[in-house]
């Protein structure tokens, strides 16, 4: 209906700003999800989304029409996120490590009217997931998110992050290994056991 991404890029390069608007409207939500998972908070994710499209616009002539525009955009989004994380790392570290009750991850926890013990467990788990993701290095987090959520290949992730395939694979492996170490105690098979082990957020 609105033409393929590649067609829109070609039109935008020919000076049709409306074509770029279509690309922004088409990809904003997925870039937001990526940016939120990278940065861990909505405000930073919003900033990353905007910066990603501004950079994409500026670099549009470097996009190769045979490539996938979404993948190319993700690459820019990841690097914008990494830049922002480097800039804000001390704050985000404090947010992640101080077990904040008011952090985005906890505030955004869903599930209307769940049983109280389930709410406690899911809130604790959400907090632990945010903490575990926050403990990954930026490169590990980026590699993991692109592999796990975006299903990008090791080669694509390597290109996005400027890493060789072996280093990329290793980053994904290290990320999963760390997540597993941090989260396995919280995802035991028996919910009651997990609930009793999980410290209360109020403690």
């Amino acid at each position: 209906m609105d033409g393929s991404d590649a067609e829109r890029v070609a039109q935008a390069l020919a000076g049709d700003r409306d074509a770029f608007r279509v690309l922004v409207e088409r990809h904003s939500r997925s870039i937001f999800r990526l940016a939120y998972r990278m940065t861990g908070n909505e405000h930073d994710a919003e900033e990353v989304v905007q910066e990603t499209f501004l950079k994409a616009y500026r670099r549009l002539s470097r996009f190769e029409s045979r490539s996938n525009f979404g993948t190319w955009l993700y690459r820019i989004g990841v690097n914008c996120s990494l830049d922002l994380m480097r800039k804000r790392r001390p704050d985000s570290e404090r947010r992640d490590s101080d077990a904040p009750e008011g952090s985005e991850a906890v505030r955004e926890l869903p599930s209307p009217d769940p049983a109280p013990d389930r709410l406690l467990l899911s809130a604790e788990l959400g907090r632990q997931v945010a903490k575990a993701l926050g403990a990954l290095s930026p490169t590990e987090r980026a590699a993991f998110l692109l592999r796990h959520f975006e299903g990008q290949s090791i080669e694509e992730i390597g290109q996005a992050l400027g890493l060789r395939a072996s280093a990329t694979k290793n980053s994904v492996f290290r990320a999963v290994q760390k997540l597993r170490l941090a989260l396995e105690p919280f995802v035991q098979v028996k919910p009651n056991v997990a609930a009793s082990r999980a410290p209360s957020p109020n403690q």
Partner: peptide, 17 residues
């Protein structure tokens, strides 16, 4: 256990737009 850990990460909510 690995699958459960990854499922927990996946289930961590992302604000909707």
């Amino acid at each position: 256990a690995l699958q459960r850990v990854l499922a927990a990460v996946e289930a961590a909510p992302v604000p909707e737009r």
